[in-house]
Design a protein around this nucleic acid. Structure first.
Length: 448
RNA sequence: GUGACCGUAGCUCAACGGCAGAGCACCGGACUGUGGCUCCGGGGGUUGCCGGUUCGAAUCCGGCCGGUCACCCCA
């Protein structure tokens, strides 16, 4: 057998980490449903031509081929590829099932996606995303653009992870500004401005001159716009002061102001308007979002999304939508890497039933069954070793309670392994404290 | 996909051309059926993989794999 090595970009967690992931996903799911989003799962594959509608991401797509494919067989448009996000498959699903869905349709979707990128810290080739989207037919009211960040704040806010900060911008605002400025290719300008955090104003200015043929005054105005970032609607007069006028700009300003105002009322400190958020994807048409984990800003965005008016269209039918995506694997990878998450024990087991002798196993099984009936995770010792060893087995796994079956008519006893306290107990009515029944996720502070 | 740095026991690291080691962890005993402390003992490694140089390679060279960082892009 060949030496076993991990495969780059395909993370596998240990059981205690998987338990944390499942608990995190449970919380997300509960929050999404609390806000009225319905669950959806789409197949892992889409026809290549569907996946590539998004644009120049073709290099990232993993193609599915049969081992017995004809040698030299071309990869056709109808070949299957693994989906690289959940938005494109969702748009396809909406078109395919429009007749059976009620609109506005709100759904959440928590699934693996695959991208053939170079792996790095917090970046994987196989990873889990949790998406929420709302689509409607023909038109999508702007108030959804204010609602989505609140769902995100609710979903992530109750978890023992660092707070997320959402930065929002609006495509209409930027495009209107650039058009009003006389720059007629807003997409190119956006691409340059998007790099501001990375390469700084000098290089962005050079880029703008090169790729967008921007003049000095135009560059200055673009950089001034990108420098505006406020937690309230004071960005509106700040933008107006730059003296640019365009109908699209007015629309964008009004929409973003509404997003900020709503967030301020319901989740103060969650969201800021930031005029340099661009997002690379060109299908966004309104509000765009990007969220970072506090303390992990350099690792990039852990959530992203925005409004797309033209992603799901077929003939005359149009389904404008808006969505946000949470990078579950990235969040976990960053926090595990920093040692910032801990679980109260390594196994689900709450009670470990000790075994006096192998002949006592049937009695031990009955005790375990009684506890499990009352929803107390229980396992029976593997072997009737000395009690000291059986206790040690439980202690190493962090199991909080060891149960000693009574022998020769003596009553059962249960021992709290942390305090050492041992009490007479009846498997039909004893129960652990609420905090001990299931493993609990905690944030680890003060790692050095 | 491009470039740079790094790979020794489960973990953290020594040995840097000449017998592959320590601490922690793990297993056993002292302690005859109630863990954690202490003491004593034990098992663990084709030095990431393949090839090259050399009398001799963990050590030097090349390729591959894996990890990290900067580009690119993105969750």
């Amino acid at each position: 057998m060949a030496r076993l090595t991990p495969i780059s970009g395909f993370p596998e967690w240990l059981p205690w980490q998987r338990m944390i992931e499942q608990r995190l996903v449970d919380r997300l799911r509960a929050a999404f449903e609390r806000h009225g989003f319905s669950p959806l799962e789409t197949r892992a594959v889409e026809p290549l031509d569907q996946l590539l509608r998004k644009g120049e991401t073709s290099k990232e797509v993993y193609v599915l081929r049969r081992l017995q494919a004809e040698p030299g067989e071309e990869i056709a448009d109808d070949a299957l590829g693994l989906h690289f996000d959940l938005t494109v498959p969702f748009a396809r699903f909406v078109l395919e099932n429009a007749g059976r869905l009620q609109f506005p349709f709100r759904r959440y979707q928590i699934q693996k996606v695959w991208r053939g990128e170079r792996p790095a810290a917090g970046r994987y080739r196989e990873f889990c995303q949790a998406d929420i989207d709302i689509v409607d037919r023909e038109t999508l009211p702007a108030h959804y653009e204010a609602e989505l960040p609140l769902v995100l704040g609710d979903a992530l806010g109750s978890l023992p992870i660092p707070p997320v900060g959402i930065r929002a911008n609006n495509r209409k605002l930027c495009e209107g500004f650039y058009l009003g400025l006389g720059l007629d290719d807003p997409a190119v300008v956006l691409q340059a401005v998007d790099k501001l955090d990375k390469i700084g104003p000098q290089r962005v200015a050079e880029l703008l001159a090169e790729t967008a043929q921007a003049g000095e005054a135009q560059i200055k105005a673009c950089l001034a716009l990108a420098g505006i970032s406020t937690g309230d609607d004071s960005f509106v007069p700040a933008v107006r002061q730059l003296g640019v006028e365009h109908p699209l700009l007015d629309e964008g300003l009004a929409e973003l102001a509404a997003v900020v105002a709503t967030a301020r009322e319901h989740a103060p400190g969650l969201l800021v308007a930031d005029m340099k958020i661009a997002r690379g994807l060109d299908y966004y048409t309104g509000t765009v979002y990007e969220a970072q984990l506090r303390g992990f800003e350099s690792a990039g965005a852990v959530c992203a999304g925005g409004r797309y008016d033209n992603l799901a269209t077929s003939g005359t039918d149009r389904y404008p939508g808006i969505g946000l995506s949470i990078g579950v694997t990235r969040i976990l990878g960053l926090l595990f890497g920093a040692g910032a998450l801990a679980l109260s024990r390594q196994v689900p087991t709450c009670v470990f039933v000790a075994l006096p002798a192998e002949s006592d196993r049937p009695a031990a099984n009955r005790i375990a069954a009684a506890l499990r009936r009352r929803d107390i995770p229980t396992e029976v010792s593997a072997s009737p070793a000395k009690y000291g060893k059986q206790i040690k087995v439980a202690a190493r796994r962090g199991i909080p309670f060891v149960w000693f079956p009574g022998v020769d008519g003596a009553p059962d006893e249960v021992k709290d392994i942390r305090s050492g306290e041992q009490l007479v107990a009846d498997p039909e009515c004893w129960g652990p404290p609420d905090d001990d029944r299931y493993p609990v996720v905690t944030a680890t502070t003060g790692e050095s």
